[in-house]
Design a protein around this nucleic acid. Structure first.
Lengths: 232, 232
DNA sequence: TCAAAAGTGTTCGTGCTACACCCATGC
DNA sequence: GCATGGGTGTAGCACGAACACTTTTGA
């Protein structure tokens, strides 16, 4: 596979034309094992061999930014059908050693039941990391991750995006745990339940989650569409 | 001047390399004559002759996105020293007839005492338009403007960005008027003053604005830096 | 019967909304 | 002295924060 080589040749060629080209990168969050996690890939080719990075790639002329996100994630991670939204464009001159690439970063939320990673020949490895324990990242991906975390924290207070992190049906305790992991602080159970139910975003199902202890009512989101709601 | 011709040739050449290139566009708002206004330029060259557009241009490989914004606005409008922040990247495939260009849009606020427009040989005209009466716009600039307006409305409720729209010293009535123009609704004078003063963003100066009627206390922003504050 | 998580209300303080009149000045 | 915008306070209500015990189940 000479995909990376091809990219490097392309970028070199572009230098002649004196213009920046576009890539997309997607910060993918997931809640699992009581942790907020992010998906990273380990790169194979020089000059980034062994470095971890947020998955992404160059944008082709016949695809929109969103189509490019879908294509890269499908081919590099095997994932599809997830929610994502645009985060920010990163355009420092030296952010990629190989040439002038402006990256439009996206923020994506995945429920743990959607996780079904495929490995790719182009990458050494692909893994979930606790957001509090990420390895050294390539390019300016540390900055992108920091921006994504800030955005995520702000968004869950004003929209129903958090639905993307949960399975179809979930208990209020699971939902509260997701909020607590993202916000990095504990919330009062009674106040949380009052506020969440007051938003009318959720509907009670007839089912219950049967664990070792008292069964919990399962809820689902009334509407999968992302909308503005005052929550916290 | 063969600048546009050069761009078209560049874009054509880039098609061969199968990658998208980057531009920046800046939506510049200003309050004047009791209206919220936006700066537009009238284009000269085909295929957009006579169309109005948001000012911007391609990003060079040796400049960051922000540096590119500054350069384009300096050369195209003569403006400098203003506040701006990133808005959104627009990347539909057909947004520019000439080729595949992804535009990173910025939002800028200008105080009327900063306005000192220069005309440029590359453009037919440059003018301020009432945001409620903009002409047909080129590219996808109608969508960019709509996004900028939504963002502006959201931002003035949570940050002190509105300072960018006002002169150094201003009366509370001027500030309230700016809010009303942006939000498109009237606000209660007593409640507005209470809330604004409660944020501690402003400091009273010793000066007064002397008009035909009762003099008004002039205020200024305590801090020019943009920060998060709950306002409305 | 014990361990573990589910579920439930009230009090208090803060902040938002609605609303009307007097003040200082120039003409 | 009058026209014009500048400037001020209060009462009622809704919402957020703090806080502890009972219930249900499996082992």
């Amino acid at each position: 596979m000479s995909y990376n080589l091809k990219i490097m040749r392309t970028i070199k060629a572009l230098q002649k034309f004196q213009h920046a080209i576009v890539a997309v990168d997607t910060v993918i969050f997931c809640v699992a094992e009581n942790k907020l996690k992010i998906l990273l890939i380990e790169m194979k080719r020089a000059p980034y061999t062994g470095k971890w990075a947020i998955p992404g790639g160059l944008v082709m002329p016949d695809e929109s930014l969103e189509e490019s996100v879908v294509r890269h994630l499908k081919t590099k991670t095997g994932l599809s059908g997830f929610y994502f939204e645009q985060l920010h464009a990163f355009g420092k001159v030296d952010r990629d050693y190989r040439g002038r690439v402006v990256s439009v970063a996206f923020l994506s939320l995945l429920s743990s039941d959607q996780v079904n990673l495929k490995t790719s020949a182009d990458y050494a490895d692909i893994k979930w990391f606790d957001v509090n324990r990420v390895p050294k990242l390539a390019y300016d991906h540390k900055e992108i991750l920091a921006t994504a975390l800030l955005r995520l924290r702000a968004r869950i207070g004003h929209t129903n995006v958090i639905g993307g992190l949960l399975p179809d049906k979930f208990t209020l305790s699971e939902l509260q745990q997701a909020y607590e992991l993202i916000l990095g602080k504990t919330l009062d159970k009674r106040n949380f339940r009052k506020k969440i139910l007051a938003t009318k975003m959720l509907v009670e199902t007839k089912e219950k989650f049967i664990g070792s202890f008292r069964p919990a009512v399962l809820y689902k989101f009334k509407d999968k569409k992302i909308k503005e709601v005052n929550i916290l």
